[in-house]
Design a binder for these strands. Structure first.
Lengths: 258, 258
DNA sequence: CGGTTCCTTGACGCATATCAATCTGTGTGG
DNA sequence: CCACACAGATTGATATGCGTCAAGGAACCG
């Protein structure tokens, strides 16, 4: 546990949960109030932070490190829901469910995490509409991702799921670069995509044949539209590739309709 | 389209979205304001209300009828996300995503639906913390269901998914009755559970061997704990069976640990 | 009745999980 | 600097569970 100051956020506040910040638009005093009631904790890799069934007593803000949320059954099978890194938050939704945590939270690398007490968050939500609206945006964002995960597992093949994930990473890491990296271990990504590491690996071999170079966790596209075959309306909307109109597969490009 | 009065809600306000109401705790004037800005619409069965890619312009409140939300791909494959009936709402989350709708909404029977303009909802959320908190509760509730759906498809067998769904329905329709009904057509439930109607049907044959009678859409349990084998921590928490402590499988019953 | 929609049952093939072996990279200690 | 250990990733062989396709039955409604 360590002293919490606003300094910690000097860098992190810029990139928070893919553009959506818990603290966005809050006045200075409110923000300081949050920090004063929070505590900082360090975790080793592979530590359990929250177990299914635990009472959710904090909202977690990842200052630095890697964390995943997942569900497990008695047999030890696991379904990875989210993988988080710097600036992401978790348990924001669970706090408002009013039930024991339906998910596990586990560090996947050394991590420094801010614990914000759940009660403080709930009270603030009742007093501060800006904060309530920030939470609403974050939760709906997670919900959207959950919907995509559901439809991926229900109606997409493993190769399509991997391609879709790649496309998302590609856009997130800079749509105009031909290179991006896998930010997590392959086995964890595989679990997130609802397949075994073996199937993930075999899907990679397929993808390689489609103009995509894969060396360890480094991916290089041989041409700008190599992944566009995996695009859908959701992701097309967030696509920021410069010459988007030339895309042969873009679902929002009129010329590709029907 | 028809005149909207508070009369419509005299009955419905009691049962709204499984205990969580959009209008809960709102003062009379706010509630009336919502209704004054809303319009009432009637739909036949199998009409499209919203398509993937549409701009979400309303929040929908099901006065009467049945509706489903689902995602589809170009090939016509579908993943059913939610099935709604009287008192349920949809698009509450999508409105706050700030993107084209990631889901389709379709009536599955004749329905009367209240359209509440998205802009009005968004403005109200910024002015009224009670309303914002109601929305937050509803969205987190949907998110929880989405998480369960993900883990069901990732780590449960078809039979387990059906059993889990049955258990949920059993509790929802009165935990102390031995009888309950399937509130939707089997093909739709199958899609919601990520399987084909054929597999759903074969799963039913399995379930019948486990002390559960199935006649058309009527289910009868031969003993009170027949479905407990499918229980988990999530659902155990909402279990209201009288002699719960006697349950041989209850995961929150200490004697069953390990 | 006859027609339609929904559900069930059967036969079959394929895709993905499983199990097992090998390979690759990385860090550690001699 | 090499040898070794270990984790992660890949590859291969096999089996099986679910989807697919096709036919038959059941319930509902005119």
């Amino acid at each position: 546990m360590a002293l919490v100051t606003t300094d910690i956020f000097k860098t992190n506040l810029i990139k928070t949960d893919k553009g959506i910040s818990l603290f966005q638009g809050l006045n200075e005093d409110t923000f300081k109030g949050v920090l004063e009631h929070s505590t900082l904790h360090d975790y080793d890799a592979n530590q359990t932070i929250i177990q299914q069934g635990d009472t959710p007593s904090n909202l977690y803000y990842i200052i630095e490190g890697g964390v995943r949320t997942f569900r497990a059954n008695e047999d030890g099978d696991e379904a990875t829901i989210r993988m988080l890194s710097n600036g992401d938050t978790c348990m924001e939704a669970v706090i408002f469910m009013g039930i024991p945590s339906p998910i596990n939270v586990q560090s996947i690398s050394e991590s420094r995490i801010l614990h914000i007490p759940a009660n403080y968050v709930k009270n603030l939500t009742l007093k501060d509409t800006q904060f309530a609206n920030n939470l609403l945006k974050i939760v709906t964002h997670h919900y959207k991702n959950a919907l995509q995960q559901i439809d991926a597992m229900a109606i997409k093949s493993p190769v399509e799921r991997v391609g879709y994930y790649f496309l998302g990473q590609h856009l997130e890491q800079g749509a105009n670069s031909m290179d991006f990296e896998l930010p997590f271990k392959k086995a964890i990504i595989a679990s997130h995509l609802g397949m075994t590491p073996e199937t993930f690996s075999r899907s990679l071999s397929q993808i390689k044949k489609m103009g995509i170079e894969i060396k360890s966790n480094k991916i290089r596209l041989e041409d700008a539209f190599a992944l566009c075959h995996f695009c859908d309306l959701d992701i097309a909307h967030q696509c920021t590739v410069e010459n988007k109109d030339d895309c042969p597969n873009c679902p929002i490009n009129e010329s590709n309709k029907f």
